[in-house]
Design a protein around this nucleic acid. Sequence first.
DNA 1: TTAGAATGTGACCATAAAGTCATATGACCA
DNA 2: TGGTCATATGACTTTATGGTCACATTCTAA
Lengths: 209, 209
Amino acid sequence: MPRETFYNLPEVKRGKVESAAIDEFSQYAYDSASINRIIDMAGIPKGSFYQYFEDKKDVYRYVIDRLVEKKMAHLKPMLENPLQDNFFDLLFKLYRGGLEFALSNPQLQMITSKILADRKHPVFLELMHDHINASEQVFHILLEKGIERGEIRADIDLELSAHILSTLNTAFADYYLEKKGSIIEEDYLAYVSRHITFLKQGMGSEKSR
Amino acid sequence: MPRETFYNLPEVKRGKVESAAIDEFSQYAYDSASINRIIDMAGIPKGSFYQYFEDKKDVYRYVIDRLVEKKMAHLKPMLENPLQDNFFDLLFKLYRGGLEFALSNPQLQMITSKILADRKHPVFLELMHDHINASEQVFHILLEKGIERGEIRADIDLELSAHILSTLNTAFADYYLEKKGSIIEEDYLAYVSRHITFLKQGMGSEKSR
DNA sequence: TTAGAATGTGACCATAAAGTCATATGACCA
DNA sequence: TGGTCATATGACTTTATGGTCACATTCTAA
């Protein structure tokens, strides 16, 4: 946890530090991220930085907490009544939400991808016993319900399918971000919709079933 | 390219250096990988290392070349007559091949994942103008053919679908590698088969189409 | 006005990194 | 035996890292 001093900081200065940290961790994995670059970006001396944070892990935890907080806030409305929609309608909302989050917070999305790629790193095992795989767990539950309701084929592998939905959720947003870049360019809702159709019906034609 | 000296090395010593390098790059991303650790593992002095390789990039390139070479050798038979199978039979072979490769070369598989996660790193842009996205391109071609033959729905997004197939190919192998022995007791061929069924038919039940 | 607490600050430390180089060793040929 | 060439070697250089700390400054309250 950041020190009291950090929270007492004038808002603009605290914001500069936070932005610098997010910027650094969006470009570099935990090990390669540099405190020196962060303080240069933020325009604060090194001594000050260590008044605010205990160590590197501490800033990183802070950044991840902000990330989770923002993402949760974004997805919360969709998970309020998860069982009133049918599975694929809810899936659409979740993927749309994920994409919108990525488009409006590209740096946080980049951090998300880095975390997933690096998830076996010691620092995560220590830092994230909470929210890692939260996404996978949500999809697991939803899939179970979907099977009960007969919306999902009963012969799927639950664990694997939950993993795939979670992986693709991030991968899909990453892909869109990389290829399209901005939300205005094209009808991204149609794009999400086509992706959900793939998840529901696969790539195969009628003929090939 | 490694220096002449490296190739003149007695096979066993050269093998030790190669293994040490592969081991290091399977555990650490390019930036975090350490030459010092490599030479300690290989049991050679630092001076010798720099007789063999020009710099860090040079060993890395060497490792990647070995990786691509081995993977190609493994997948070659499946790509010999790509159009004699229907799309999903070929897809099955490719996913099976990918999984078998991962199972018999777990370290190389780990390197593959790291490369994909880190693909925007300067060193890759310089090093891999060849074979990056080779996988995506193959899938792209196969999908086109599949559409022509009416095996694939004509309304899919080609680029995105190729990307998904490529991403899932690696993700699927990673997942199996991580989970095998614990929750997966099923024979791996049946596992691949079920995954291909998902790609073909999706997760949706008949009712929900 | 002044004591004391909270903050700010950058020189400094130990450590590790990639890469160099002068010298030592060994092999091959005359 | 002597000379030349490829190879082996580890001390060394430079640069960066995460983190510390003695001291300076500012703020608060009595």
